[in-house]
Design a protein around this nucleic acid. Structure first.
Lengths: 204, 204, 204, 204
DNA sequence: CATGAATGAGAATTCATTCAT
DNA sequence: TATGAATGAATTCTCATTCAT
């Protein structure tokens, strides 16, 4: 029995070690940025020798790419959840606002996302990953909003796109707000958001 | 005579040289990021030797701090302009939307701002500068909105803060949108913004 | 029974595995040089794990030493063949010239030999092996040339040594020629060699 | 005056520093081989910090390329000298044999040449440099041998090429001989060479 | 004020070697 | 016998910073 699952265990172990590196790296990137975090530091945080990280990742770049890919994966899963729900979309969004805002304002995650966006300015692979993820997400959201559960099926394409961009900008911008205003009041923001989203997601 | 105006001339020249360095550095930071841009590259762009930059700035960090400070200064000046205008605030904002959005979506400027925000994650001085600038701006905007030209004098503090954060988030977020969606349609965004801002800046 | 032939079988297997490593290493050294070839690469070529190579060889250095020793062994065997033949030596050499030149110009083998010579510059053990092999070979050749089948029994020691060095230099040098002039014409070289060797191996 | 030659002096200094690095590197490469010599060691030998070497050379590879190029240059200059002389070529060669052999057997220089040849097996740039230099040299020698001072103007192309390759091989091979037989007798080699070259450079 | 040669610490990465399994 | 995960020292190379001129 122990002989049988030796290989599976090993690859499961390998997968776990890989995750260990990704977690450690994400932690370090958040605190000191991609360039500020050294492989030695990441290795330390992952309780692993610097050399051994290269068994799991080809380069430092490959690490941030994996982090981005993982994050994108999570985003897709979140979107699928939204698609699988039933009922009017606007209500679902408004009802979930607390959770959404909490996730967005979680500084840990936000800092990492901003780091990835800043890195996208320099690393074309990261930029491509983020952009294609963004395009896919936009497509998914568009389908939801113009589908039976959305209220914008009559909306002109450009108008729809403009609204989507503004809504998207709000949530992206909250990442920056959380960073620049540590005293930001969640409840107040949620209240204002409710008002604004209701307008942005309803027919003119 | 030449002795008399030597100092003023010199210090004016010195100021110009300083600006030269800041412009060059901003240019380099935009293109390759703070860590990607080397002092040698900045020196080249400023038509100056690497060593001489240290006559004007104590360190590379001091350069980004100066850039941030300058940017903050510009922000204040923009805000003062808004304060000096007359007429209803909402109209002024809506009328200026084209310009504001164009400035925001100008990727050059946006990339630098995101770079500064990312740098804030590892440079506490930059973080402090950005945060205090943000606090001052918020105070200025609050005064405008609750003043005679604003429509929110009746608005509760928390509600006002929430709205301000959301509006702020929109414009900050547009920086990220421009980066992630190169095909973003300005006009459509402006139309959506008009709608949303009208709600966010009017009494309930 | 299985217990009885276990050792012999095992040691024969072990010997085969050792050879496997040597062949793989020789192949890798030829293609990427001693320093360019990693133990991982050699292990891959030998269809063996990197760690297991250390059951057969103490270190990477020990591998090239074994290759050198093996090559030296082959050289001795070739010389013994020459000694065992009958008839006039000069004729035997001239007749075998085609084969000898083909072997010498075989770039694969030559590259490895040059690699070993270059390695001799930094590995004293390799240098010692090559030098003592060289000394033994010279002694063997001297005996042949001054023996009944050779034509140089009347030749003074120094003259003999000089001629031997020049002949030796020609064949060693052909390794380099093959590398530097890929368009080298074998037949033309053999013709010139025939002429030159006839002089160098005949009494004045 | 001192102001005038400031730049020239500087660039002369730079040139001197460059040479310093080349000399130091050649020294280290000879002793420990290209891969055995570290940049730190070379820097130490050049009395310079490791980082500063990169002001003069783009990479370690660029250093050996420069050494090869310099060596090739010297070879050309030697050949031009031979072309500029007058009198019968065979006599000139035989007369200069002492110097030529001394230069060839100088282990320092030879070890470096072998190192470059071994490196050519891996580094295409080095291989190309050496090969094109070799081709040019062969062309120059061919012209000499078939010109008025040479005795091989009647010789068929292939025969001429074969002889040239064998002569070339002798001198290249002597590099290896010097390495493998430290007790090699120069005078005896020269005597044998005289005999062999006379045959190889005369009409059949 | 101005240069750019020079430094040296520190970065990412590689790889021979070890060792628990 | 065999594996390959793990180590960590060493390597090449970069770059902010200093300083003699």
């Amino acid at each position: 029995m122990s002989g049988n699952n030796k290989r599976p265990t090993d690859s499961r172990l390998a997968e776990a070690r890989r995750e260990q590196v990704l977690d450690a790296a994400a932690h370090c990137f958040r605190r000191h940025g991609y360039h500020g975090a050294s492989m030695a530091e990441i290795a330390g945080a992952a309780a692993m020798s610097p050399g051994h990280i290269y068994h799991y990742f080809e380069s430092k770049d490959a690490i941030i790419e994996a982090i981005v890919a993982k994050d994108v994966e999570e985003l897709f899963s979140t979107m699928r959840d939204l698609q699988d729900e039933s009922g009017e979309l606007l209500d679902a969004i408004i009802d979930g606002l607390h959770t959404t805002v909490d996730q967005t304002l979680d500084t840990e995650r936000g800092a990492l996302l901003l780091e990835m966006i800043a890195e996208a300015a320099r690393n074309p692979k990261v930029a491509a990953l983020l952009r294609s993820a963004d395009a896919l997400t936009r497509q998914g959201v568009r389908e939801l909003l113009t589908g039976p559960r959305g209220m914008l099926s009559q909306c002109a394409t450009d108008e729809l796109d403009g609204r989507m961009e503004v809504i998207n900008a709000i949530f992206s911008g909250l990442l920056i707000r959380a960073l620049l205003n540590p005293a930001l009041k969640r409840e107040a923001v949620i209240a204002a958001l409710r008002q604004v989203l209701r307008v942005a997601l309803s027919p003119t």
